[in-house]
Nucleic acid binder design. Structure first.
Lengths: 153, 153
DNA sequence: ACTGAAACAAGGTTAAC
DNA sequence: GTTAACCTTGTTTCAGT
């Protein structure tokens, strides 16, 4: 594992988190390295898994998924069977883009992408039909002030 | 806006959301198109903004940012000055990877990335020093069951 | 360990159909 | 939408610093 990230590596990660379509030459130029040295570092970062993958970011509004919802979930079932069922449900429902087990009194937070409140309600019906939940509360996003995949390296 | 996404476009988006490093040949093959028909569609999707950008996804643990925190925020100030200050603060604090204005009684949800609970506390101190907030509650993520950038197109 | 050049291979891009 | 020709760019190698 490349636990030894120096300033150059961090610059590379910053650039690639912002724009992964940048060419090797432009990247090398931006971080102040020769094409060769830069390319080798990128390959090392990929090999070590520091760069996990490269993905296309799709505009939610352009594909009719303009509504983000945070769903706070509580359960009274904490056995393995319930968890397995919950995990499968999370995997199977494509509207769920994030599912996080929390510390504290809140059990799970779901990040959900749908096209409308009506769509959310249909999603909600499917969710509660598949897995028993003792408490659900949905919070609708009105506006994204910030929404990035870039970590502060 | 390319509101006319057919099945082929959706397949392209699905592939590129999963792996944007895939070559034109492999992508064309995967969606059942010739290299250039496929390439032309990708360019159209980029031009229309449907594909917003391509980014590298960095492994949080590999850069010492293994802790995700959801921060629920309430304010009693709803004037423009406060909002401007809040927005600037959100922009300036790199630990904040998401900031969302909510409908309902919850005002904002912040998604925060830090290395440890101690790091979170330092972040928290900096946050409340910069902007007046009437109520903050942090929820720490124990485990990600699902966490994807891919929208269900 | 990085630089620079050079050469090959691969893939992106354009043109013609 | 296709096929095929281009030609930019990624990738490897090697000599030099």
């Amino acid at each position: 594992m490349a636990d030894t990230l120096d300033e150059i590596d961090r610059r590379i990660l910053r650039q690639l988190q912002r724009d992964a379509a940048i060419g090797t030459d432009a990247l090398a130029d931006a971080v102040g390295l020769s094409r060769n040295a830069c390319w080798r570092r990128v390959k090392l970062l990929e090999g070590a898994g520091t760069i996990a993958r490269r993905v296309a970011i799709v505009d939610p509004a352009a594909v009719g998924l303009g509504l983000s919802v945070f769903v706070m979930v509580r359960t009274n079932r904490h056995d393995r069977d319930w968890l397995t069922l919950f995990e499968r449900t999370v995997r199977d429902l494509p509207e769920i883009v994030g599912a996080h087990r929390m510390a504290g009194d809140l059990d799970y937070v779901l990040r959900v992408r749908v096209g409308s409140v009506a769509d959310y309600d249909r999603f909600y019906q499917r969710l509660i039909a598949r897995v028993p939940l003792s408490d659900i509360s949905a919070s609708f996003v009105m506006d994204d002030i910030k929404d990035t995949t870039a970590l502060p390296v």
